[in-house]
Lab assay of single mutants.
Amino acid sequence: MATVKFKYKGEEKEVDISKIKKVWRVGKMISFTYDEGGGKTGRGAVSEKDAPKELLQMLEKQ
């Protein structure tokens, strides 16, 4: 499965596409929420050019 690499609050993070719950576009950025486990929801964003094609496909399906 594909992963998304991004920075959040200065920390490098990587999340599996299957854990992503919601995806939306903000200008040229793709924002998303994902399941961190333990009932927590994380947030992240990547630029449109750095987003994996699976993430862009999720955006188109909504």
Rank of each mutant, 00 (worst) to 15 (best):
G38L: 06
L59V: 09
R25W: 14
Q57R: 05
E36G: 10
F6P: 01
G27V: 06
P52M: 04
T41C: 15
F6H: 01
M58D: 03
K53M: 13
E12A: 10
E48M: 04
A51Q: 03
E60I: 12
A2T: 13
T33N: 12
G27F: 04
A51I: 05
K40Y: 14
G42R: 07
L56R: 13
P52R: 02
G39Y: 13
L55V: 08
R43N: 15
E14Y: 03
E11A: 12
I30M: 11
M58S: 04
P52W: 01
K21A: 15
K9D: 07
I20P: 00
G44V: 03
Q62M: 13
S18C: 15
K53A: 10
K19G: 04
I17R: 02
E11Y: 06
Q62K: 03
K9H: 10
I17S: 03
S31L: 12
S18H: 10
Y34P: 00
Y8C: 15
L59S: 09
V4E: 00
K61I: 14
T41N: 14
F32Y: 00
K53D: 14
V23L: 12
K49S: 07
E36C: 12
M58A: 10
K21L: 15
K22M: 14
K40Q: 14
G10L: 02
K19D: 12
V4Q: 00
A51N: 03
T3R: 06
R25Y: 07
K22S: 13
W24H: 03
V4A: 01
I17Q: 03
E11P: 01
M29C: 14
L59E: 06
Y34R: 00
K22Q: 13
V23T: 13
K13G: 02
K9T: 01
E14D: 03
V23K: 02
V46L: 05
K19C: 09
K7C: 15
T33M: 08
K49G: 09
A51V: 09
K5V: 03
S47L: 14
E60W: 04
V4F: 03
T41F: 15
V15D: 00
S31H: 14
I20E: 00
G10D: 07
T3A: 05
L56D: 04
M29H: 11
A45Q: 09
I17M: 07
R43A: 05
K19P: 01
R25N: 10
I20M: 09
K49Y: 06
K19S: 09
T3D: 01
V15I: 11
G27D: 15
E54A: 08
E36M: 12
L59G: 04
V4W: 01
T3Y: 04
K9V: 02
K28R: 12
V26P: 03
K40V: 15
L59T: 11
K19A: 12
G27H: 13
K53L: 13
V46T: 11
E36K: 08
A2M: 15
G37F: 08
S31T: 10
F32H: 00
R43M: 07
E12G: 03
D16C: 15
W24D: 04
E14L: 02
K40E: 13
Y34W: 12
D50A: 11
G37A: 11
Y34M: 01
E11R: 05
E36I: 06
D16P: 07
I20V: 05
M29V: 09
K61C: 14
K40D: 11
M58H: 08
M58T: 04
V4H: 00
G38W: 07
R25G: 08
E48G: 07
G44Q: 01
W24V: 03
K40P: 11
W24A: 04
M29F: 07
R43Y: 10
D50C: 13
E12W: 14
G39T: 09
T3L: 10
D50Y: 07
K61T: 12
L56S: 05
M58W: 05
P52C: 07
E48C: 14
E14H: 04
A51F: 03
I20H: 00
L55A: 01
I20N: 00
E48L: 04
T3G: 02
K53F: 13
L59D: 04
W24F: 06
G42E: 13
S31A: 14
E12I: 09
S31K: 11
K28T: 08
D16N: 15
L56W: 10
T3I: 08
D16H: 06
S31F: 08
L59M: 14
V23A: 11
R25A: 13
M29S: 07
A51S: 13
E54R: 04
R43I: 05
R25I: 08
M1T: 10
E11C: 12
S18N: 11
V4I: 10
G42T: 05
K53H: 08
K49N: 08
G39V: 11
V46I: 08
M29P: 02
D35P: 09
L55T: 01
K21P: 02
K49L: 12
T41P: 14
A51K: 01
E48P: 05
S47H: 06
V26N: 15
D50N: 09
M29I: 05
Y34D: 00
E60R: 10
D16Y: 13
E12R: 07
D16R: 12
G39N: 08
K61N: 10
L56N: 05
Y34V: 02
L55M: 07
T41R: 11
M58P: 02
W24Q: 03
D35A: 09
I30P: 00
P52K: 02
F6Y: 04
P52I: 13
